Computed example of a mutant assay.
Amino acid sequence: MTVAPSPGPIVGGLIISTAGWRWIFLVNLPPGLIAIVAALFLLPRSATRPTPLDVRGLFLLCAGVTVFVYGTAEAGRPGALDSPRVWAVLGAAAVPIGLYVLHARTRPALIDISLFRNRGFTAAVLTNVVVAIALFGVLVLLPLYWQIVRGHGPLATGLLLAPQALGAAVAMPLAGRVTDRVGAGVVVPTGIVMGLAGTAAYTQIHAATSPVLLAAALFVIGLGLGATIMPSMAAAYQALPGHLIPQATSALNTLQRMGASLGTTALAVTLQHEITARSPELGHAALAPLPDEARVQVAPLLATAFGHAFWIALAIGALALVPALMLPRGKA
């Protein structure tokens, strides 16, 4: 789990450069099928009687989350926030989600919202979600910076993104051991501070910032993420009795996906706003491939816009410190 993400950006860049972007999705099919077969034959059967499927809750939650993710993805398009259609879609998402909350308060549901009465679980989930918002927002900005401002292709961009995965691979096993000894309440805030330190370097970015410096900062961000996400997830499970872990996993993953969508939208909109404010004539074309001569001319302006967007990512990441300081301390 710690090593596998490291070659991901590199392989992704190679696929896009050679086979085309659709293969990013097609290459997932064989591993997915292998995972299904492995789950059927290798995972132990549950000793308890399965609970009936909450069909109504499944329909309401899937509809709400799907429409929400679609709406936030549309909101991230240039100028989309001025469209009544986007706001209508986001408003429509609130209806099934609100109905699901009412449904879950009165009967056993797909995700038990009473889990959030547990302070430790709620703190861990909030930490994880806020980190997901900042993380996925940054993952939108980084490849755009390397391709738009610096003019690199997909493969080179993938290589330049690899330090984050390497940092996470280094930190995860160490963070797990230390968390067992001192608790997530010590490790997770430390990881968040490390991630903030790496992100702070990107707020000072310009058109000719040293790639070595940016790679080092990205490695530090990876260290911070490796010391944050897994320990906070472990803290969420530690706060609950064993029979509630399946429901906790569903709640945590659903909210992570929604947070990732929010982060992507927030920083994409911020970046577009910053670019348009500095160069209205460039506008939406700034996020499209530019000829080398045009790119060199506007690179300083674009780099400044990216730096301001990273300030927003830094502010979002700092918010994660609030719930992280509520996580348990001491030996697990």
Results as ranks from 00 to 15, higher is better:
L42Y: 13
V187R: 03
S6L: 15
L90K: 00
A313M: 02
A266N: 02
G198T: 10
A134K: 05
H273N: 10
W23G: 08
G57H: 07
L319F: 09
L53E: 03
P84Q: 07
T48R: 15
L53R: 06
V131W: 10
G137Q: 12
H243N: 14
L301A: 02
T209C: 05
G195R: 10
S210E: 14
G91I: 14
R181K: 13
I113M: 09
D292A: 15
I133L: 04
R77G: 11
V298E: 02
A92R: 13
L271K: 01
A35G: 13
A315V: 01
T190F: 02
G137L: 07
Y202D: 02
A207H: 07
P241Q: 00
R105D: 03
L213P: 07
Q272F: 10
P31I: 11
R177S: 11
N128M: 05
V187A: 12
A92E: 01
G32A: 14
V269I: 02
A132E: 12
A294F: 14
W21N: 15
V65W: 09
H284F: 15
L327P: 07
A239D: 10
V89H: 09
L301Q: 00
Q164A: 08
S232W: 03
W87S: 04
A208Y: 15
P84M: 15
T265S: 13
A92S: 12
W311A: 11
R49N: 05
T51V: 15
H243Y: 13
A294M: 15
F59N: 12
L141A: 01
V269W: 06
P44Y: 04
R105H: 06
P189V: 00
A260I: 02
L126P: 03
P143F: 08
A235R: 05
V67C: 06
L90N: 09
F219V: 01
P280Y: 02
S250Q: 03
V296S: 14
A315Y: 08
G283Q: 06
A294N: 11
V86E: 08
G79F: 08
I205T: 04
A248C: 02
L141F: 14
V182M: 08
Q256G: 03
L126Q: 00
I133M: 06
V101T: 03
Y237A: 13
A309N: 13
V220F: 13
Q164V: 07
G330F: 14
F41K: 09
R150Y: 09
A132N: 13
A88I: 03
A123P: 11
A197V: 11
G198D: 11
L43C: 14
V129N: 01
